[in-house]
Design a protein around this nucleic acid. Sequence first.
DNA 1: TATGGATTGGAATTATTATTTCATATTCCC
DNA 2: GGGAATATGAAATAATAATTCCAATCCATA
Lengths: 281, 281
Amino acid sequence: MDERIPRDFETLRATILDRRESLPKRIAQIAAYALDNPDDIAFGTAASIAASAGVQPSTLIRFAQQLGFDGFTSLQQVFRERLRERNSSYDERLQALRAKAEGGAGHRAIFDGFVAAASTSLNDISRTLDDAHLEEAISLLAKAQTIYVLAKRRSYPVATYIAYALGKLKIRNQLIESAAGLNAEMIAFATPADAVIAISFSPYAPATIEEARTISEQGVPIVAITDSSFSPLAQFARVWFEVAEADFAGFRSLSATMALAMALTVGVGEKRRDTARRRKA
Amino acid sequence: MDERIPRDFETLRATILDRRESLPKRIAQIAAYALDNPDDIAFGTAASIAASAGVQPSTLIRFAQQLGFDGFTSLQQVFRERLRERNSSYDERLQALRAKAEGGAGHRAIFDGFVAAASTSLNDISRTLDDAHLEEAISLLAKAQTIYVLAKRRSYPVATYIAYALGKLKIRNQLIESAAGLNAEMIAFATPADAVIAISFSPYAPATIEEARTISEQGVPIVAITDSSFSPLAQFARVWFEVAEADFAGFRSLSATMALAMALTVGVGEKRRDTARRRKA
DNA sequence: TATGGATTGGAATTATTATTTCATATTCCC
DNA sequence: GGGAATATGAAATAATAATTCCAATCCATA
């Protein structure tokens, strides 16, 4: 009776799962239904939910009370809150999580922060990405003999994933790494029949900018992924994408960039297959 | 009176925006409120919404009727449906997008697919991540003299990002790359005072598994990120995380893994700072 | 198999909420 | 500026929904 009542959905879920064994049959039935159809609980009336779950309304109320709520209505609040949360602007959630992490709320808060930053970035990019640019970039890259991938530091992980994916799709590509110090030579091989994917975010790695400049002066078309129209990359690029990644604890998400990178890669793969097929026919 | 009533939120929104000019003052007021706070409309009662919007409940009903609904309740349905839709399991959306992309629906569909895969993965991991494991992994890594980062192929981008972040946080680390072919030697340096972050997903890169085995036999504790309890990595690991990444067009998302990786990295950074501070005091 | 306690179903009750109504105010047009 | 049409506010009413209660049933245990 004086147990702690779950205030948020995850706690509630855990509580239910925890007690599942010890619940009476009908109560267990409604418990299972609740976890399977949380939306119905959020919106339905006691009677309608009870009917869908095949129990009496009173059972539903007993279920709520057993969990410590004082009735169905307060149980329902938790299910509604869940929908609100999920839907609430990720920005607000990020704010809150940042404050929480600052306040030393433990490592879970840090993790949640990174998840929220990633989600925000994904939301953002799917709102802002321009379809025409995507098409243009893919056509351009699909025509290239070799695709050069250019990125350093923070953007480097994206470059390695692009290179990996291009490799799997059997698309000739060259990752421009700095390790061996042979970048200049590597770049010298690129011709206007090739193409470059360049990725750089503020603060722009000077080497990336320099290499992009050189390569664009050789007449090689560049597709750039960067973070603003003022980016030095943008001026060298034939097509460029503005990607705003949310940051957390000083590190930016890469999710949006990754999603775009993969779309470009797979897009090129598809385009080539289409072209090949059409040529045969 | 016999106008078409909007059945979905977007249509409703358009209708409202369209008529905005011609609506009476109070009705316009509630209309603006509705578009600004759709969640409140979905969940509130006529009275509570009216109060928040600064109008009478009757006005709210008139607003609904003016739009062709027969009362507030049916207007509210549209706002609720919207939340349901938005929330409809990402899995279903993914299914749909996959089908769409298969059907050759253009490159935007591919992009959307990657975004959806990333979102699904993030959702998933924030549900399943175990806080205790996170704490344990961070403590373990925080004590290490050097953190070795071990990953190949698909997981390699994550490793490079971890290495980058550790570097920025001034935490000694060593990325085990295969390029130079000196992995065995590198690994030989690791001692039980160090620690490893190993990342591998099915199909597990044999080199990663081999290296993990060797290093664990040297008594170096391993934190693993992998995709199932059957993973060969799990058996060598002191702590391991199961991360299920959704895939699209044959490539898996890395978002969840990235978020976890960053949480580990920044968590270690914080833990070290705390420890240092405590020592001073 | 009898007995006590827990569980369940269903109707009665109570509370809450949407809707209607009507008096009053405002606006717009002649 | 006057009058009709429209809009608004407030309270009354109707509808709907949550909760309670009690009898019936089930289940474990002796």
